[in-house]
Amino acid sequence: MNIAQVFTQTLKQSGKKLVVLLPFSWLLVFFLIPFLIVLQISFSESRIAQPPFTDLTSFVDDVYTISLNLFNYIDLYEYDLYLSGYISSVKIAFTATTLCLLIGYPIAYAIAKLPPHTRNLALMLVILPSWTSFLIRIYAWIGILKQNGLINNALMGLGVIEQPLEILHTPIAVYIGIVYAYLPFMVLPIYTNLVKHDSSLLEAAADLGARPIGSFFKITLPLSVSGIVAGSMLVFIPSVGEFVIPELLGGPDTLMIGKLLWSEFFNARNWPGASAVAVVMLLLLILPITIFQRYQAKDLEEQANEH
């Protein structure tokens, strides 16, 4: 082996290592370590100082002590507002995800049925709104939903209602906001799944006399479960921690954990408490996250087997 070969060999080796090392270390520094810091702070105590929490470790009289303070977690458990906050976040996210699925599935299905070149155009039309500022679109919804906004003015003008409906600052507005913002995340995975289906299956079923509705529930729907799960998780998980939508569209009684965390951090200046809220929220989300990853892995295996 000559030197050049050794050189290229090492280069290849190190190149391969670099491919792993670069993103790995980036995530380590900017994702894992921050999370560990949050974990650490959740075990400290808040105080009036800069930074506003105590050190876990102290070095007094040659004794190195580490003190883990469970107060924030006990407090979290005892203070019932947080419990109801978690429950109501999950409820709101679940309802919004269901609505999203009910609206998103038919859209994905209709797109998958289109001729191939129109499909891409339709798909692009679904994604296009997300490419404009999210906040601006949410503000547009405020204008539509508010007391003397578009919907109320239209309904009152038509004489359907006499008193304006209160929609803004209610849970309904939050549902509309979440469904609106996350609809593409539901449509895309379902569409990707549906478009792969073998249409000959449906034709065979039709030949055997199955009605379209029957074969939809017996064949298409079961086959698209992995798309449904992926889409639902992509909507559900971020909705649980949503802050902007309940803050802008929700009312004061729309209790969501993202808002509670925000107020614990900013209004109560309780950084350790806010960190504990974050840790518990993440623990809460581990189950849906694993479900999501498992289905993704399964989907990919199937794809791999096809090749």
Binding site: I41, G241, F265, A278, M281, I289
Partner: peptide
């Protein structure tokens, strides 16, 4: 693999808070 997918589902408030602290 976990670290790659986790930021997708991490609530923004947590990501923001943890990065600030970092």
């Amino acid at each position: 693999t976990g670290m790659i997918t986790a930021p997708l589902v991490m609530p923004e408030v947590i990501t923001g808070l943890s990065l600030l602290l970092l």
